[in-house]
Design a protein around this nucleic acid. Structure first.
Lengths: 192, 192
DNA sequence: GAATGATGTAAGCACCGTCAACATTTGAGG
DNA sequence: CCTCAAATGTTGACGGTGCTTACATCATTC
């Protein structure tokens, strides 16, 4: 009998927990994501996940790390290295869409008081930062890459959160595009 | 005997709960803000707050509403109606400072899956929006006020969240200023 | 083949949000 | 002034949570 019904050892409980956490996040939102629910879904006792995750925050950090990778993939799929305001606006739309398509995941990634020393998160953070700075260097060669990179990321990130919180409504794609383009063209009229 | 020890009726429990919630938020962060803790601090039974707040979310919404007013005050105290990139950068710094000075409150205000139909929140939201648009109309008269207002708010809001989540570090004031100014001057080099 | 470390379980603690039933106080109408 | 209803606060309970401690089972290595 190779698999009677429930072998004592699960096999790969860490991965199963991660998968269960993602499913719960999509189905019930952040509130439904409890360690006990994860354990139930993985078909395991309530305290089994503690063998693989120190506490709930550790599981959330792993979820967030996967989320960062998926966000990066979605952005790269839009434009591997966007250039100029129009493509940059496309990328902004993709970023906001990710947030709105998977709001609970996005909140876990960015809205939890997280542990900034977590290496997975730090690495993902550095990756996003490098991606944005590469864009900036190419599209705005005369700007300070660090400052402009920060600003571009903040602009897009802020748009995502404002939409997520219902502070903005209306056609997302068009409004995101309009906001990004307005910002990138505004200076001409205002600066001396 | 006007106040023996503990009169059956509190007097103004709704306000006392709000005050207790603010204190707990500052002292212990979002995690420490439970209805029961609020009740304890107000010196009242665990379920008494339910006479004044339908549930925990209702209390959080009231906390957020007060937070919006305080944020608006802090911005107005910096520049009643900022004009031009430099003053706009000052206002951005004030916004980010608010977020970093009172991180738990800021998260309650913006990072909770909130009820967008709550009238208090909607009103506060409209007030911030009007403030930003007034700034934009004056500082960027050639821009579309709606799109540019959204973009400016998003830029500042995004900076606040990125700092809050530890995605950025270093001297806050200088970096926020640099990011805002970089964004507002970048277009000249990039657009046709 | 037995010891050892990794993995999963069971039981329990303190806390949480919320409901239902009850107690007390206040205030308005007779 | 007295009554009685509404507003307010209390008690007790239920199911859920994160987490700890002690124990059971398995897989591996000597």
């Amino acid at each position: 009998m190779p698999a009677p019904s429930a072998p004592y050892h699960h096999g790969d409980l860490a991965a199963a927990c991660l998968r269960a956490a993602f499913e719960l996040l999509e189905e019930e939102g952040t509130a439904g994501l409890s360690l006990r629910a994860v354990a139930r879904r993985a078909g395991v006792s309530p305290t089994a996940p503690y063998r693989h995750y120190a506490d709930r925050d550790a599981l959330l950090s792993s979820v967030a790390a996967v989320g960062y990778r998926e966000l990066a993939e979605q952005l790269a799929a839009t434009h591997p290295l966007p250039s100029g305001p129009a493509e940059l606006a496309d990328t902004a739309v993709a970023y906001v869409r990710f947030a709105l398509d998977r709001p609970a995941l996005f909140r876990v990634m960015f809205a939890e008081p997280c542990d900034p020393t977590n290496p997975e998160r730090a690495a993902a953070n550095a990756a996003i930062r490098a991606y944005v700075e590469a864009i900036v260097r190419r599209s705005f060669p005369e700007s300070d890459p660090a400052a402009m990179g920060t600003a571009v990321w903040a602009l897009v990130h802020g748009l995502a959160f404002l939409y997520l919180d219902g502070k903005l409504d209306g056609p997302i794609d068009d409004q995101v595009r309009a906001a990004v383009l307005a910002m990138l063209t505004a200076a001409n009229g205002a600066m001396s």
